[in-house]
Write a protein that binds this DNA or RNA. Structure first.
Lengths: 97, 97
DNA sequence: CTTCTATATGAATAAGTGTTCATATATGAA
DNA sequence: TTCATATATGAACACTTATTCATATAGAAG
């Protein structure tokens, strides 16, 4: 049962690394069931607009979030259910400790 | 659907952060289906004994691995199926990209 | 065109992290 | 006890990363 060829080791680590920051975890958490624009995310998790924007850039680059533009605002949402699954499994693990 | 109270945000991030290093990913990968002692892990993933030991300490502190002593050797294994589940879900995500 | 709001981004700084190297500890064998 | 092997650990260093601050971009409203 060897799930990884050497090439993918880095990719896996990079994926989990993205879930490994509390600001990004907060962003993912508030996006679990709805899309939000940047400033609403910032308000919701009480982090500066700039910091949220920087982190969204990372989440976007990893294709963990998608976005759509509506006038002046940009709404972000989780890319797919896979992101939710990984996140929820992590939550379950924590809750069982 | 708000899975996190503020208190747990850090815990979740800390959990994923542990999966977010390629040396630790390699260690988890070789422990998926068997236990191994430290020097065998080091050989298997081609990383120094010291580096492996340092990373095992982190995995141990997070209760992601368990260990047993046999004479001179210390065999490490994944703590439980939860660790495997999270890891495999990450692998699936990567393989689907 | 000007102003206001929303978002992005670059630079700088501070904090965190992984590896290496040297060494300590501990167990087994002789 | 002495030697060899397995593992752990502390310090140092290089590297990465998240935030802040200032500023740029862009769209909407007046």
């Amino acid at each position: 049962m060897n799930l990884l060829d050497e090439d993918k080791t880095i990719d896996i680590a990079e994926l989990f690394k993205i879930f490994g920051d509390s600001t990004r975890v907060k962003i993912i958490n508030v996006l679990l069931d709805k899309e939000l624009c940047v400033c609403d995310i910032a308000k919701a998790i009480n982090v500066s607009q700039s910091a949220v924007s920087h982190q969204l850039r990372i989440l976007k680059a990893a294709k963990l979030v998608k976005f759509r533009k509506v006038g002046n605002c940009i709404f972000y949402a989780l890319s797919d259910d896979h992101v939710k699954k990984i996140f929820k499994l992590g939550c379950e693990h924590i809750n069982e400790l």
